[in-house]
Nucleic acid binder design. Structure first.
Lengths: 200, 200
DNA sequence: CGTCTAAAGCAAATATTTTGCGTTAGAGAG
DNA sequence: CTCTCTAACGCAAAATATTTGCTTTAGACG
């Protein structure tokens, strides 16, 4: 198999001009948000900065919320610069803490907000969970002991409470919220768990 | 202490005209959404139906997303028509199933979407969790056995995974998702739990 | 190199949002 | 009860944003 010329194959006219326009528009959104903030960002502004006409943007993204949501998704890159040591009771809590720090920050929250503004209520809001699975899987794979749970269980136990409380709670999150959840989760699934224990 | 005359005390001019305007506007939003759907709903439309001028709406709510979000919050009334029998292993899963049915329905999802559109990323998106706590507390109170967990733990274990997967997942939810989570949760906290077991 | 078309440009037509200023309802004092 | 005072509303003009019909262009494919 020789190399594929076009890197994308989604739309009918993927390469060339369309791509350039998309990149220019995305770059303009990033630049303008960084410069003036998300508030008051308008399509004509973005169009001017990107060097395209507003109608181009309206036809492709329909409105500013969708566009910003699109950009936010592209830029969600919570890479996991984590070197698993092989012990789940260390690795999972460490990752959880890092993840919380990323998400519960000004840019993290802004990303979630922007992405959610473009959500239609039916299809998923964004590949946020997809972005997280590889990190969790990597940690599980690195475990020296057998793992008796799957990635989805980790999402339910540590990611879900974090996101839910970020979005639907007023008070600032306890800084160890995700870490604690991860610790409890690992404890619960360790082979020599004592059972019942205390709540939470 | 004698009775307070004004039922509201938030704004500087709470009763009378302001209140009438707010009610008319809210009613107009509800009616128009029911009639034509959320798509394409505009401030001028709402204003016309409510019998007020657009500028009134703009000054009070700033934009249609905020207004719709506001309305959605007022109408979130997931009442719990549930008669606890006193056994957590029955009551909690039953409630969880009912809750999922409410939330993962067309109107439920629309409500969450609308509410989230108005979220600013910092303060909580809506009192969704507050609305849920009383139901859980009622079930716990009705339990004939001692309860060794708190309401927040239930939110983390059953509500959070449900909401997170509704929002950040593509595939339709398993209809027993919340129920299963509740069953596992109760099991985990039952006095005679066997411990480790298999994950999820 | 020529054809064919999705996507971009352009500009006129609409629709919306913003704003300044006059008006009104209703709370509170006397 | 009447008077005063002001937050919130109405109105209309101005400023912006959005939609739309038609033309032009880039680039995929034969």
């Amino acid at each position: 198999m020789s190399e594929i010329r076009s890197p994308l194959r989604s739309g009918p006219r993927p390469g060339g001009r369309s791509l350039r326009v998309q990149e220019a528009v995305h770059a303009a959104v990033v630049a303008l948000i960084e410069e003036f903030g998300r508030e008051g960002l308008t399509v004509p502004q973005v169009a001017a900065r990107a060097g395209v006409t507003p109608s181009t943007i309206y036809r492709r993204w329909s409105d500013i919320a969708t566009l910003v949501s699109d950009v936010a998704q592209r830029n969600l890159r919570i890479d996991c610069p984590l070197k698993p040591c092989g012990r789940l009771s260390d690795d999972l809590p460490a990752w959880a803490e890092m993840y919380q720090d990323e998400m519960d920050s000004t840019p993290g929250r802004a990303m979630v907000r922007d992405v959610l503004r473009g959500w239609d209520g039916m299809q998923k809001a964004c590949p946020l969970l997809d972005a997280v699975r590889p990190s969790i899987a990597m940690i599980c794979d690195a475990s020296s002991e057998p793992v008796n749970f799957d990635v989805e269980a980790v999402i339910d136990a540590v990611v879900a409470p974090l996101l839910t409380r970020m979005i639907f709670t007023d008070a600032p999150l306890a800084s160890t919220l995700a870490r604690d959840a991860a610790v409890a989760f690992v404890e619960r699934h360790s082979p020599n768990a004592s059972g019942s224990g205390r709540g939470q």
